[in-house]
Design a protein around this nucleic acid. Sequence first.
DNA 1: GATGTTAATTGATCTGAATCAAACTGCTTT
DNA 2: AAAGCAGTTTGATTCAGATCAATTAACATC
Lengths: 249, 249
Amino acid sequence: MFRDIPLPHLDISNIRSSCASCSLRELCLPVGLNDQEIHILGDVVSHKRRISRGGYLHRTGIKFQSLFAIRSGFFKTCVLEEDGRQQVTGFHMTGELLGLDAISSDIHTCDAIALEDSEVCEIPFTKLEEISLVIPSLMRHFHKIMSREIVRDHGVMLLLGSMKAEERLATFLLNLSRRFCMRGYSESEFNLRMTREEIGSYLGLKLETVSRAFSKLQDENIITVDNKRIQINDITRLRLKMGNSSCVT
Amino acid sequence: MFRDIPLPHLDISNIRSSCASCSLRELCLPVGLNDQEIHILGDVVSHKRRISRGGYLHRTGIKFQSLFAIRSGFFKTCVLEEDGRQQVTGFHMTGELLGLDAISSDIHTCDAIALEDSEVCEIPFTKLEEISLVIPSLMRHFHKIMSREIVRDHGVMLLLGSMKAEERLATFLLNLSRRFCMRGYSESEFNLRMTREEIGSYLGLKLETVSRAFSKLQDENIITVDNKRIQINDITRLRLKMGNSSCVT
DNA sequence: GATGTTAATTGATCTGAATCAAACTGCTTT
DNA sequence: AAAGCAGTTTGATTCAGATCAATTAACATC
């Protein structure tokens, strides 16, 4: 579905120092490492995997071996309830790290499903821990990444616990906007990779409510909605809709 | 308020090997360490702090220096919204680690407030990272703790996103019950340290709704409520109320 | 023990979102 | 191009929980 819409490929490598080893600079992990350290890390994360749209990166219950750094594409993570319905716990894009939840018990606690054709780097976790011992700055950075995930989750808790439908959607759109922007895409115009139902699941709303909230924001000329294509016309007013400014990092 | 109710002091030290250094075994951190490693760790976490009921362990916005391991007592963590209301992000008891959210930005992102007179061990984080490099099992365990926090947050997200009031309260009570039980207290009878409003904030409900949910569970003879004193009469039926079994680790 | 204060319960009413239902759009398949 | 299907929008109705309000209970202070 999105294959016809050519999106610029994110490449941070040319705004930092160039690096031979597998474009490692594009990952979230190597921040602040020198070239030698990057090289050590490169030996660990060299294994790449392609996941096509709808495919599973990992499933709940399987043994945890590796973290996955998203090189390109888009994922959702979700937990499956007994009755078959699924609750989406997050949407993840290029540069983000998947699998952090599985460290605690060595078992994956959620499914990770590609919402578009994607590419990940597999990072064997025991190896990552081993080289953390010789590259302290890598360890520190890894701790920050885990901590950031906790902060992000607290933001979502705040959203789910105290915001109403429209505020939730505004927060969600602004969060996507910022993340697209950070990756070099437009902050005011983007394609949603997920369905209304998946958005609803993530935001604690039913799909009809999500749809109505979209329509409402469009009626107020704050955004323009064309199916999955979203255009933010007035980001200031969208921020006002959010209410609590501090949510969802 | 709770000072008149003598609670047995948790002491894991006698069910593991005994240890001289500041009862360190009581903490969550030293799992699986040998005595020498415990000693190294002991030098780092020696500094203790007392926080009396209502006192702040840390505040949003202040610089992050240390994690805090709760030695005794009970805390809530909460984020303050602009309008002055506060959203509770968690309740924390003996053995748990506070401050993990602050690692990402070196700034505390929430307040931690004692709900009863409490005692914590201060753990300077840079020192913890340093000795992690020489005690790999400590590093591994620390990663598991952070990951467990992420899993816990996902459980809360599930609760907030898809459960109704009664299910939320049942889940909350069972979670408390299990945590008290793990610490050697009764799993069927305990005192709530927090108000209905704080419970409501945590569960995404208003205090009246929390109160009604308590009353409903009492009417069904599943629990007995006497203000803050809770007795679980039928834990099986309480579990059934929860619905989704996999939530809130 | 009286008094002010905070917390909890319970009832009545209102409302935002869920649910039920129907129509429509855009893709995919043949 | 037609048919089928998944996803989306929109309307009508229902309901769980919020809000408003009053009462009671627990606790702290003098």
